[in-house]
Simulated scan of single mutants.
Amino acid sequence: MSIPTTIVISCAGMGSRLGLGCPKSLVEIDGKPLIIRQLEMLQNYDDIRIVVGYQMEKVIEVVSLYRKDIVFAINNNYMNTGTGASFCIGAENSREYVVSLDGDLLVNPQDLQDVLKVKDEFICGTDPSTDNPVLMDTTQENGSLVVKEFSRERGQYEWTGLMKIKKEHISAVRGHVYTILEPLLPLPMKYIRTKEIDTLDDYDRAVEWVRNGYL
């Protein structure tokens, strides 16, 4: 039996560090906008909400040409809030479980399918690779990795922005998604292969990664 799941993709930000003059969700990754590559991996899910803000009309247009059943939520205060606020807006009236996915994150397709099949709450981590990452300090419990703390100073894995929690565990925040998770720790960690796009160097690496089959 499938788990009632809502997927929230946060695409409201300006992408200032990337400097391409468009939301990061719309950057072309080897011929396709990043958001379309994400939606291609989510074709089996029927409750997807995309939170828009900066250049919202462009994001809505690109997505709507690809798929007609996407729900759009608006973060009008995108200049002063982070992905946590966007996630909370998108998660209103959600199903039992809610998945958070950042609009600037590429995930290995098989890894994404595998973690979305997990039946309970989880946090996704990867090998640290970005500048000034949010790290996750982990430990072993009953043979599985769990996250015990988010930190800027220590941790074996980097927080990816991808997670799934029960809707009743969502609390309103203005900053980052991980601040919603901190009161719920420890939570299971699932390892995924990703490329986050914050800078032009990140973008170049992401394009090469896709061309190499996400390897």
Rank of each mutant, 00 (worst) to 15 (best):
I74L: 15
I74Y: 15
V62M: 10
P183Y: 14
P109E: 12
L215Y: 13
L135I: 06
V134S: 07
E28A: 03
N93P: 08
K164E: 04
E149L: 11
K119A: 14
S64C: 11
L34P: 09
D30Q: 13
T81N: 09
M1K: 03
N77F: 06
V99P: 04
M56W: 03
E208H: 10
P186S: 13
G125Q: 08
L65V: 03
Q113A: 10
L26I: 07
M79T: 15
I197P: 14
D114F: 01
L39R: 10
I192H: 00
L106M: 15
T130H: 10
L106A: 14
R95A: 14
I7D: 00
D127A: 15
V52K: 10
K195W: 05
T126H: 00
G15Y: 01
L184K: 09
I197H: 14
K148V: 12
Q43D: 07
L26D: 00
F72C: 11
N44Q: 15
M79P: 04
K166T: 05
L34S: 10
L42Q: 06
T83L: 06
L187E: 01
A91D: 09
M136D: 08
Q38H: 05
V71A: 14
V52P: 02
R152M: 12
V98N: 13
R211K: 15
Y54P: 02
E40D: 05
I36A: 02
L112F: 06
V62T: 00
F87Q: 09
Y45D: 00
D204G: 15
P33A: 10
N76E: 08
V51W: 06
D201G: 05
Y54Q: 07
E158L: 15
D104L: 12
A206Y: 11
V71F: 14
P33T: 01
C88W: 14
I60D: 00
D114R: 06
I36R: 10
R211C: 13
A91C: 04
C124F: 08
N142M: 04
G82K: 06
S64H: 04
I170D: 11
L105R: 14
P128D: 14
E182R: 12
V8H: 01
P128I: 10
L135H: 03
N76P: 01
K119I: 10
Y178R: 05
W209R: 02
V177N: 05
K167I: 02
I7T: 01
L34K: 06
V52S: 03
L26V: 02
G143M: 00
F150L: 09
Y178F: 12
E61Q: 00
G84C: 11
E96C: 09
G82Q: 09
G31I: 15
Y54L: 10
Y66H: 05
I35F: 01
A85M: 07
R174S: 11
G143Y: 01
